[in-house]
Design a protein around this nucleic acid. Sequence first.
DNA 1: AATGAATGAGCATTCATTCAT
DNA 2: GATGAATGAATGCTCATTCAT
Lengths: 211, 211, 211, 211
Amino acid sequence: MIHTAEYLFGKQGYTQTTIKDITTRAGISVGTFYFYFNNKGELFQHLYDEFAKKLQIISDFALKKSDLGVIEGFCRYKAAELWTFQQLQEIAKTMLIEAPGFDPLFEKKRAHTFHKSNERVEHIFKNLCKHGHVHIQDTKTAALLCNGSLYSVVMEWLQQNRTQPLTEYAYPIIIFNLNAFQLKYVEEMVQTYITETISDIDTFFHFNKWV
Amino acid sequence: MIHTAEYLFGKQGYTQTTIKDITTRAGISVGTFYFYFNNKGELFQHLYDEFAKKLQIISDFALKKSDLGVIEGFCRYKAAELWTFQQLQEIAKTMLIEAPGFDPLFEKKRAHTFHKSNERVEHIFKNLCKHGHVHIQDTKTAALLCNGSLYSVVMEWLQQNRTQPLTEYAYPIIIFNLNAFQLKYVEEMVQTYITETISDIDTFFHFNKWV
Amino acid sequence: MIHTAEYLFGKQGYTQTTIKDITTRAGISVGTFYFYFNNKGELFQHLYDEFAKKLQIISDFALKKSDLGVIEGFCRYKAAELWTFQQLQEIAKTMLIEAPGFDPLFEKKRAHTFHKSNERVEHIFKNLCKHGHVHIQDTKTAALLCNGSLYSVVMEWLQQNRTQPLTEYAYPIIIFNLNAFQLKYVEEMVQTYITETISDIDTFFHFNKWV
Amino acid sequence: MIHTAEYLFGKQGYTQTTIKDITTRAGISVGTFYFYFNNKGELFQHLYDEFAKKLQIISDFALKKSDLGVIEGFCRYKAAELWTFQQLQEIAKTMLIEAPGFDPLFEKKRAHTFHKSNERVEHIFKNLCKHGHVHIQDTKTAALLCNGSLYSVVMEWLQQNRTQPLTEYAYPIIIFNLNAFQLKYVEEMVQTYITETISDIDTFFHFNKWV
DNA sequence: AATGAATGAGCATTCATTCAT
DNA sequence: GATGAATGAATGCTCATTCAT
């Protein structure tokens, strides 16, 4: 039923999807739905929490490698995010695009996740500044710009036909941001980092499935 | 009535705002509303068209200056966008954040405007490539990244308390993008371009009011 | 529609009567119902207020006569109450019997009306005590007993077949209470007072119809 | 579980109390409930029967005394009723106040009990008439008035704060009715009868607990 | 005996839209 | 041009009851 809800929310949007739509398609009764969730919003919250958790799990995994250099870390983090959005594309559409609009209660949750992601990136930048790799005045805005550039590609991909894998956009996105922050890099290494990350995650995921 | 609709959509969201909300607040009857618009969606479309038109008008004005250099053009374009979003902040929230979610019909329109904006930026990049200022492989993705970075700041600003003017973010956004595309610039000049643009638009707007 | 609601509430009870029952029988749409009342409870409140108001109007009228003696006043008051319950028998059933059970919000209103009626009777008793007509220690409980004896007859009548007019019970009820409070009376006069009151009210009502 | 149901019906009312409310609070499963009762109504019927039976038991006990005079019998009967209502106050509220409203099936049962109580009182009155103690024309209405006056005090007590014991109202209620039927009595004796009855029942109940 | 997940008919309420005046 | 009462399909949610285990 949860999978059905993800599918329908992604396809028709949260508001346009009725409880009956979900239950009929999932082959259960309305009562059963309300046995597991108190209301429609609670289902959405659950989906969102799962979404945020998965995003976290993959990012954590990608950064777990030892002797992680600045550039490599950045590449792995971004590649991992793209891989996850691709994996969760059905529900991602609802989470990233529709969700902000329909419920002030939920809006808080979304804002919180978004800020956590921003803080994460900001933290990376602050570290880079401290080690003299780069000079950024307003790290908060910098994080926003960095995340925003990635999200714009993800959203465009979600709203278009998704012909090619989202992860193929990792390279231009990363190069764009490395340049933006005037970080020095070797093009071939960037590509290697990305490929390795995707491969690592695929293997990890194949054996663990969100554990 | 149109202004009331903008206000209420921005405050409560499109779905949460009823026709009666709008007409009561605007001091007209429901019947009168349906004399001017065939349905709720048409009102939104109208608002959206107006929004897109205004965005266009200000961008056009900002780029009308003679002897416009590459960097100056970029600065003026971005500053103009920010100025407009700040000016139209009430409805901008609905247009940028909520709209994508609630109707496939609107979605097309929104996508169209977004693509036009992207194409505009892409066009700039293609020109830059042609004159050898910069080397960009995938100009489409580049435009997406460039726009996305700006939008992320706008959205954050719209959803937060909006204490400082949105235009104050012009400088970090522009620097971020100029670096990202490895364009050479003089920091003082960038700031000057921005200040001049804002000043020009203010004057223009003071006399013309969206004409 | 209001009359339909009164009829159905009286026949099936408040809870068992759906909005659709009312609207279908009244030949209007559900939407129309909600145009006039915000919810089911509000309709009930309205019915109750009307009920209480009418009870008040008739009592006031019955006691408006000049040179009203103690016994006559008591007789007229009780006769007037019975006449009103008979007149409003459909809704009275809901108000007196069902209402106390289904809504704490409404319960307050009901309690208030009930207390006002009690206070009215209590006030009569206090006056009687002052003029030495009777000696009652606990006038509050006395009023309760007096009202309760009448209500029990009304309720029984409402729940049974209602073959004879409720007003025919006025005489035994009044005699019962006059005795209970050891008031001296002439049997024939009591009967005359009752007959006169009913006749007065019938005439008044025929011309004024709840004003 | 039965006690839980009594408690919840008394607190929230029959309609507002769900089967789940009862089973959860009683620490049993819904299935178990339906093993003992076929449906919600049957539980209520059971509660009602128990309630009526207890009322009967105490009344019977109170009247079992030998050499019972007319006045003493009346006093003992009324005092016993009040004692029982006080004892069963939780469920009494539902039985006396709410029950009449929600189901024609219950209504019959309630009416039956009420009539039995009335007949009992009527029987007393008929005896009094036969022995010339009193002259009552319509004994049925008389019984109604007599019972009604007591019920009104009970209901008021149930709906208010219940600060003082219900049995303290026995004296005014009885005096009221003795006067109403023009029965001669000695005030001190009435008070003695009441006190004795309460004391007898307390002792009986202490050893037998509804047997 | 006991469990509790599953059922689904049924209800109050909303709101974009219509149309007679 | 303007009004606003009327419409009714559609939705989220409840809860007594069932039944496989």
